[in-house]
């Protein structure tokens, strides 16, 4: 599950070591925007050591590297891949070639560290109009790509507008990218909601992107985590329905039957898959069970 992925500034030991205690689904250790130009070296060393020896609970641990147009990104990849990050979030992806370059660099780092090839996933941040336009090709450029994420501030600026509370400027992009993500078979993760004290605004936005089909949101403050988890939590009725569908599907499978019926309605494979995922979101099944 990737309902919430919490950004942690890469040069801040306090956040790096405590971020998982807020129980987001994932962590994004940031080597890019939250680290000033003069501190990139020091942050990279700190992040490497924290990845190597830190505790992260049940969180998926990823790192946002510096853009592939900078001198830092290759060192970032080497540091985070060799020390156990399970994913690399790359900013400002505009073309499939960027993903292929990154794939190659990650492959090299995996080989050097003795990590099975393909283990480390790629999360693509699409922060320009060009990147959004190329989204499908980007998402399909490597089997490592596991999620696409629309940009926030950078994308708004590239669209020659600014971010509003209503999110008007990102609405079309969000709608487009969910279709792209599903077509490409990757997750769609939403951008951050930057107004950290506006709980109602966050709830509204999380409800909107959940309804579109997004798998979750990036988060910049721990207080945002429970609000988003609450939005993504299934209702009692949804859980009850899901449970009956999954039980009926299991019973039919055990009896060697192809067709499943619940309350007199025939249930097909996508409904069973969705029911399993509902149980995952409710904490009643594991991710692997939902895919089984």
């Amino acid at each position: 599950m990737r309902r919430t992925m919490l950004y942690l500034p890469g040069n801040n030991p306090n956040m790096l070591l405590r971020g998982h205690l807020f129980e987001p689904d994932g962590l994004v250790i940031d080597l890019e925007d939250s680290v000033s130009a003069g501190e990139k070296d020091s942050a990279r060393i700190l992040v490497r050591e924290v990845l190597r020896r830190g505790e992260f609970g049940a969180c998926e641990v990823t790192a946002r590297i510096n853009g592939t147009d900078t001198e830092h990104w290759r060192k970032d990849v080497q540091a985070v891949v060799s020390c156990g990050a399970s994913g690399v979030r790359v900013p400002k992806v505009e073309s499939p070639q960027t993903v292929r370059d990154l794939d190659e660099e990650i492959s090299g780092a995996e080989a050097q560290a003795g990590i099975p090839q393909g283990s480390v996933k790629i999360f693509c941040l699409l922060e320009t109009a060009f990147g959004v336009w190329n989204a499908y090709d980007i998402a399909k450029a490597s089997p490592r790509v596991t999620a696409i994420i629309p940009g926030g501030e950078d994308l708004a600026a590239d669209l020659r507008t600014s971010r509003s509370r209503e999110g008007t400027e990102l609405e079309w992009v969000r709608r487009m990218l969910i279709v792209v993500a599903r077509a490409a078979g990757v997750d769609a993760l939403d951008t951050v909601f930057p107004h950290v004290s506006d709980d109602d605004g966050l709830r509204r936005e999380a409800n909107f992107v959940k309804q579109l089909g997004y798998d979750g949101k990036s988060v910049v403050h721990p207080n945002q985590i429970p609000i988003i988890h609450e939005v993504y939590a299934p209702t009692e009725r949804e859980i009850d329905n899901a449970r009956r569908i999954v039980e009926a599907a299991s019973a039919a499978q055990a009896r060697g039957l192809g067709a499943v019926s619940v309350d007199g309605r025939m249930i097909d494979a996508p409904v069973i898959r969705r029911a399993r995922f509902t149980l995952v979101r409710a904490g009643l099944a594991s991710d692997s069970e939902s895919k089984g």
Partner: peptide, 13 residues
């Protein structure tokens, strides 16, 4: 962990 990282960064610099 942090002490080690900071010493390494300072000496590298």
């Amino acid at each position: 962990i942090v002490l080690g990282a900071r010493v390494e960064a300072a000496y590298a610099r």
